[in-house]
Simulated assay, not measured.
Amino acid sequence: MKSPTIRRWSMIHTWSSLVCTLFLLLLALTGLPLIFHHELEHLLGDAAQLRQMPAGTAHLDLQQLVIEAQKYRPGEVVQYLGFDEDEPNGVLTITAATAGTEPNSSHTFMLDARTGEPVAMPAANGGFMMLMLRLHVDMFAGLPGKLLLAFMGVLFIVAIVSGTVLYAPFMRRLDFATVRHDKSRRLRWLDLHNLIGVVTLAWALTVGVTGVISALSDLVIAAWRNDSLAAMVAPYQDAPPLTERAPATALLSIAERAAPGMRADFIAFPGTRFSSEHHYAVFMKGATHLTSHLLTPVLIDARTLQVTAVGERPWYMDAMGLSQPLHFGDYGGRPMQILWAVLDGLTIIVLGSGLYLWWGKHRRTGEAKA
């Protein structure tokens, strides 16, 4: 007979698992292609393809690229320019109707830094990969969808912890990795469910915690805006609206002098959620693989081009920056991607077997009562 403590843990494990399982199956299935999104984008022809030019061809300055972007998307303004080490001759460009337009209503493309030629990026604006990303991130429901998925992630963590507690006394009766092939099919699946669950324990906790942090990204950014960014732009609180701004030509060199040893990750233009109405914000990153995910904002007066602040990184922004690539296995190249995909597939088996075990037990209980 089960002790009261074990019964409580069993109830916690059962119901936390049941509530979140369908959502987690959705996340696991959509997460598989996202692990290999770079490769799939090239395979599907959705990746930006820059034309071949002689090595060492000079780049246009940033203001020329801004002008080319606005020609390509007339009536829109540039929100962000991003820089990718995998494509040094390309500048990721995001435009929208206004600087404050929310991200899902913006348009993303790449500019050839040598010619200003725009190159379409279908995966960033629609198609299969964007469908997978939106389902995985917010289920096309915006912030409410993200908060719901964050709650499901918390339940997933509870299910993992409670499952570990339940597995400990189970292990005292059987050797580790035992699968009782001579028993009923349900017991064989129970043994496999427990075995795969404990093998994937550390990974599942990692993905669960980083998933919750990523799902709360909008709240994390809002906290940063209300805390760190508000303090940095406080002197401009009563400043008149910006009527004209200096060209973006020298922004990178100005930011590199303000943050030596770092390089630019992206530029947020005035009025976007990563800057203020009066500033360009150049987000600088470190040179190592780890620090390349930790961003330091350099705020530059959009009228005078004077550096007004070099921001400190609050811990919650560092947590978000480190969690998102870890969630998708972007730290260790192809071997880590393959490992993440295998563990993702094993998690799908754990989720499916958990449903099967619950349904079998529920059905037997109903038949016994009948």
Results as ranks from 00 to 15, higher is better:
Thr101Ile: 10
Thr101Lys: 08
Glu102Asp: 12
Glu102Leu: 12
Glu102Met: 06
Glu102Pro: 00
Pro103Ala: 06
Pro103Lys: 05
Pro103Leu: 05
Asn104Phe: 08
Asn104His: 10
Asn104Arg: 14
Ser105Tyr: 13
Ser105His: 13
Ser105Glu: 14
Ser106Lys: 06
Ser106Asn: 09
Ser106Ala: 13
Ser106Ile: 01
His107Asp: 02
His107Cys: 08
His107Gln: 09
Thr108Phe: 08
Phe109Glu: 03
Phe109Thr: 02
Met110Lys: 00
Met110Asp: 00
Met110Asn: 00
Leu111Trp: 00
Leu111Phe: 04
Leu111Ile: 04
Ala113Gln: 03
Arg114Gly: 08
Thr115Ile: 11
Thr115Asn: 09
Thr115Pro: 09
Gly116Gln: 07
Gly116Pro: 01
Gly116Ser: 14
Glu117Gln: 15
Glu117Ser: 11
Glu117His: 12
Glu117Phe: 07
Glu117Cys: 04
Pro118Tyr: 06
Pro118Ala: 07
Pro118Asp: 10
Val119Ala: 07
Val119Glu: 06
Val119Pro: 02
Ala120Ser: 12
Ala120Leu: 07
Ala120Asp: 05
Met121Pro: 00
Pro122Val: 08
Ala123Glu: 00
Ala123Ser: 15
Ala123His: 03
Ala124Thr: 01
Asn125Arg: 10
Asn125Thr: 14
Asn125Ser: 09
Gly126Phe: 06
Gly126Asn: 11
Gly127Ala: 13
Phe128Gly: 06
Phe128Gln: 09
Phe128Thr: 13
Phe128Glu: 06
Met129Trp: 02
Met129Phe: 07
Met129Ile: 15
Met129Gln: 03
Met130Tyr: 07
Met130Ile: 04
Leu131Val: 11
Leu131Arg: 10
Met132Val: 08
Met132Leu: 09
Met132Gly: 04
Met132Asp: 03
Leu133Thr: 01
Leu133Ile: 01
Leu133Phe: 10
Arg134Ser: 05
His136Ala: 04
His136Asn: 05
His136Cys: 03
His136Lys: 12
Asp138Val: 09
Asp138Ser: 14
Asp138Ile: 02
Met139Pro: 00
Met139Tyr: 03
Met139Gln: 06
Phe140Met: 11
Phe140Trp: 15
Phe140Ile: 12
Ala141Leu: 15
Ala141Glu: 14
Ala141Tyr: 13
Ala141Ile: 09
Ala141Pro: 07
Gly142Val: 15
Gly142Asp: 12
Leu143Gln: 11
Leu143Phe: 08
Leu143Glu: 13
Leu143Asp: 06
Leu143Tyr: 12
Pro144Tyr: 09
Pro144Lys: 12
Gly145Met: 10
Gly145His: 10
Gly145Arg: 06
Gly145Asp: 07
Gly145Glu: 08
Lys146Ser: 13
Lys146Ile: 04
Leu147Arg: 11
Leu147His: 06
Leu147Phe: 12
Leu148Gln: 13
Leu148Arg: 07
Leu148Glu: 08
Leu149Tyr: 03
Ala150Val: 02
Ala150Asn: 01
Ala150Lys: 01
Phe151Gly: 09
Met152Asp: 11
Gly153Val: 02
